[in-house]
Amino acid sequence: EDAPSSDDLEQFAKQFKQRRIKLGFTQADVGLALGTLYGNVFSQTTICRFEALQLSFKNMCKLKPLLNKWLEETDSSS
Results as ranks from 00 to 15, higher is better:
10 E>L: 10
21 I>H: 02
62 K>S: 08
65 P>N: 07
8 D>R: 08
44 Q>D: 15
9 L>Y: 04
40 N>Q: 14
30 V>E: 03
41 V>P: 13
15 Q>A: 10
57 F>Q: 12
17 K>A: 08
69 K>A: 09
67 L>N: 03
66 L>S: 01
42 F>W: 08
4 P>C: 14
56 S>V: 00
10 E>I: 04
39 G>T: 08
12 F>R: 03
21 I>V: 06
40 N>S: 12
3 A>L: 15
65 P>D: 11
29 D>V: 02
39 G>L: 01
26 T>Q: 08
28 A>H: 07
10 E>D: 09
73 E>K: 08
15 Q>E: 10
4 P>V: 14
18 Q>L: 07
39 G>N: 08
44 Q>E: 15
35 G>E: 10
12 F>P: 04
71 L>C: 02
53 L>C: 12
76 S>G: 13
45 T>R: 12
69 K>Y: 09
78 S>A: 11
60 M>V: 02
9 L>M: 10
14 K>I: 08
38 Y>P: 04
63 L>S: 01
58 K>E: 12
24 G>E: 02
7 D>H: 05
65 P>Y: 09
25 F>I: 05
7 D>I: 04
3 A>Y: 11
35 G>P: 00
54 Q>P: 03
46 T>E: 12
44 Q>R: 10
9 L>G: 02
45 T>L: 10
50 F>N: 00
64 K>A: 08
71 L>N: 06
60 M>A: 07
4 P>A: 12
69 K>W: 02
23 L>I: 00
12 F>M: 02
50 F>V: 03
55 L>D: 04
64 K>V: 09
61 C>A: 12
24 G>Q: 01
74 T>R: 12
36 T>V: 06
34 L>F: 05
78 S>W: 08
34 L>R: 01
13 A>M: 05
30 V>S: 03
54 Q>A: 10
1 E>C: 15
69 K>S: 06
44 Q>H: 11
40 N>H: 08
52 A>C: 05
63 L>T: 03
35 G>D: 03
65 P>V: 10
76 S>A: 10
12 F>C: 00
36 T>Y: 05
45 T>D: 15
21 I>E: 12
31 G>D: 05
42 F>H: 07
15 Q>C: 06
50 F>S: 01
36 T>D: 14
38 Y>A: 09
20 R>L: 03
10 E>Y: 07
44 Q>L: 04
46 T>L: 07
45 T>P: 04
6 S>P: 14
53 L>R: 11
71 L>F: 01
59 N>A: 13
56 S>I: 02
20 R>H: 04
24 G>W: 01
13 A>D: 00
19 R>L: 03
8 D>I: 03
32 L>Y: 09
3 A>H: 15
45 T>H: 11
47 I>C: 07
76 S>T: 14
6 S>K: 15
33 A>I: 06
77 S>Y: 13
8 D>A: 08
48 C>H: 11
18 Q>D: 07
32 L>C: 14
69 K>R: 11
24 G>K: 05
18 Q>N: 07
7 D>F: 03
50 F>D: 00
75 D>S: 14
28 A>P: 01
58 K>G: 10
57 F>E: 09
24 G>L: 02
60 M>R: 01
54 Q>L: 05
39 G>M: 00
5 S>W: 08
